[in-house]
Amino acid sequence: MRAVDCQRAGASGISFRLRDGMAQLSLDSGLWQAIMMEIGYRAPGLYVQLSLENMSRSSPDQIRLLINTLRPSAVSLSLRDLASTAHADDLGYFYHACLEAGIAVQHVLADHDEIAKLAWMIDDGVIPEEELKLLLHVDSWQRDDVSHVAPFIARLKADLPDADWALSASGPGDSACLYAAMMLGGKVRLDSQDVIDQQAEVDGILANGGQLRELVQMLGLSSV
């Protein structure tokens, strides 16, 4: 099970996503619940988050219904997906209900404008300021290009200095971006399809190529 592999590789938590036969986000709450229970059994103590951003054909109402049915401990949601179609009053009720239910919402942000929008929504009372969790996403299309990371994080710290934040990245420069974020005090989210491909354990760390192997090398944890 991939969750077990991630835990053995040193991950403190996972964010997972289920797709249906059409490669779209699955809305089958029974299937989600079964997978959540299996992860809890096979990887006890692992922080589990449902990855519900990039909804594609799913509507905000369907996503909110899925969350209300499952009552997970944590979800990641794209601010752009929800804020673009839902009324502010409905959003406010949803976000505050999640906080009251103990559901940790991680807001996925893709650019500086979304940081500003989130800050405005917090000031307006739509999104709770308490226990604020963010995931910044950057694209890096050249190896070792981390030029977007520091300005993105600086804007975050200026507008939302108390937020718990992490960074995810895609493209040839993804590992360098993740490393830069860690050096700036952030957490990182790795793509498990990139991490767990051809498994090889080195010095107790699953380091097989892709983002994890490169990060292990950058951090000086292994010579692989």
Rank of each mutant, 00 (worst) to 15 (best):
A169P: 07
E100H: 01
S170P: 02
A150M: 07
V105T: 01
P44V: 03
D164K: 10
G204D: 10
Q7H: 03
L136M: 11
H87I: 01
D139I: 08
Y95I: 00
D194E: 04
A163N: 06
H112V: 03
A176H: 00
S29M: 12
A200P: 02
W141K: 05
S140C: 07
Q142C: 04
N208P: 04
V48S: 04
L99K: 09
M218D: 06
A83G: 01
P72W: 05
A9P: 12
R17S: 12
A176S: 02
Q193T: 09
P161E: 09
Y95T: 01
M36A: 12
D159V: 01
Q7I: 04
Y179H: 11
S76P: 14
R213L: 13
M1Q: 09
A166W: 07
L79Y: 04
T85H: 15
D144C: 09
D139F: 01
L46P: 08
S15E: 07
A119Y: 05
M1E: 07
A110F: 11
G209F: 05
P172M: 13
D61A: 11
R71F: 13
R213I: 04
A3Q: 06
R64F: 11
A74I: 10
V105I: 10
E53I: 02
P128I: 00
L134A: 05
Y95K: 00
D197R: 13
P128S: 04
S12H: 15
M37W: 04
W120F: 04
M218T: 04
Q199K: 11
Q33P: 10
S84G: 13
L52D: 05
V149N: 05
I127K: 00
L82R: 06
L160I: 00
L65W: 09
L221G: 15
L50V: 08
A154N: 09
Q211I: 05
G171R: 10
K157Y: 04
A116T: 09
D124T: 06
W32V: 11
V146L: 06
V126M: 05
Q33G: 12
Q217P: 06
A104C: 00
M1T: 10
P161V: 10
L31Y: 00
S73T: 12
N54H: 15
P72A: 10
D162F: 06
E38T: 15
E201Q: 08
I63T: 01
L77R: 04
L167D: 09
F94S: 02
Q49D: 02
A154V: 07
K133Q: 06
M37S: 13
L27M: 15
V126N: 05
R17A: 12
L31W: 13
R42P: 09
